[in-house]
């Protein structure tokens, strides 16, 4: 790990002031310290934000839930309101990492974690995300875990989070603070596709800080599923994951949310596909139609073409489980 200076401010304004151009905020540290040990990240300064007052889960006036950026992943997953109203979020969080990591990792940090692409992590190989212009090692390398949707010639990495897939499906809002004040970013606009700027994962400015993630009232608690498919049954990143939420009017679909993980540079959603499900019968045929539409334009690489069919089947299964209410309490 490189040398760096360290400070621990007490207030958000103080933290924003202290952060230098080459500095980074640290909360749980589970991803940042790992990247520093690999020399992928070499900040000259760490601003420890754990003393900031961003550690609460509160009900909003709109009837939703506001989760402070410093609340630990395990605390969110086991919070009574999350278990009751947003079990999709609880299931997604508990499908990720290990218990120890969930005890350390923060809500804001989960959003900002970096891809686990082997080439991004290996400083001896080219990577446009780590070193813009150096090339992409994954395009013609080991690309079993890589993207099938939304990738570019510059980068085929995927976003690794499970929690973010649920937050995308639930249409969360990310609250941030910066030198020029506060703003809110809809979840769909928070993460970016790689395009020709794969070094940018998100639309958070370097001098901004996440303060909270807000959930709207609608939680799909009766009909939801988080289906995660991976190489081992626990403690592995998703090859494909699906966050599904349905509202049913008898036997037809009243509302639908589908977000995919493990397939793109950001949690993947198509609101048009979800809208097309409204009024359709809650049957496998409808789910297959949605899956085909969601995966339209999917392109695999040498080792990951299997993900297209895997994702298709996972979407159908997740929607079937959601409709059957098998996960509802």
């Amino acid at each position: 790990m490189n040398r760096f200076s360290y400070s621990k401010p007490q207030q958000v304004s103080e933290a924003l002031q202290q952060l230098s151009d080459t500095g980074r905020f640290i909360a749980g540290g589970t991803n940042l310290l790992d990247l520093m040990k690999e020399n992928v990240a070499r900040p000259s300064q760490l601003v420890d934000i754990n003393a900031l007052p961003l550690n609460k889960i509160e009900t909003t006036q709109a009837g939703g839930l506001r989760i402070g950026a410093l609340v630990k992943n395990s605390t969110v997953a086991y919070h009574p309101d999350v278990e009751r109203v947003y079990p999709l979020l609880a299931h997604a969080i508990l499908a990720g990492a290990s218990a120890q990591l969930r005890n350390m990792a923060s809500t804001g940090g989960n959003l900002l974690q970096r891809t686990r692409c082997y080439y991004f992590y290996d400083v001896g190989t080219p990577c446009n995300k780590r070193e813009p212009g150096s090339g992409c090692g994954a395009l013609e390398g080991q690309n079993r875990i890589h993207a099938i949707l939304g990738h570019s010639e510059q980068c085929i990495a995927v976003h690794p989070s499970d929690m973010c897939v649920a937050l995308a499906a639930l249409e969360a809002t990310v609250h941030v603070s910066g030198p020029s004040g506060n703003r809110s970013i809809p979840f769909a606009d928070f993460h970016r596709l790689p395009g020709d700027t794969p070094h940018l994962d998100t639309n958070l400015a370097p001098d901004e800080i996440i303060t909270a993630v807000e959930l709207p009232p609608r939680g799909f608690a009766e009909n939801f599923a988080y289906l995660k498919l991976r190489d081992r049954a626990s403690y592995a990143f998703a090859l494909v994951s699906v966050a599904a939420g349905l509202e049913l009017n008898g036997t037809s679909i009243g509302a639908a949310r589908i977000a995919l993980g493990g397939v793109a540079h950001k949690p993947w959603r198509c609101p048009e596909v979800e809208a097309a499900l409204i009024g359709k019968p809650a049957t496998e045929e409808s789910y297959r139609m949605a899956a085909d539409a969601l995966l339209q334009g999917a392109v695999g690489f040498e080792h990951n073409r299997f993900k297209i069919e895997l994702a298709r089947r996972a979407i159908v299964r997740a929607l079937s489980e959601a409709a059957a209410g098998v996960n509802a309490q």
Partner: peptide, 22 residues
Amino acid sequence: HGQCGACTVLVNGTRINACLSL
């Protein structure tokens, strides 16, 4: 790197990976 758990300790009673904390 937080992948094996051999460094697990209890901090304020909570289990964490000591290798990924300063």
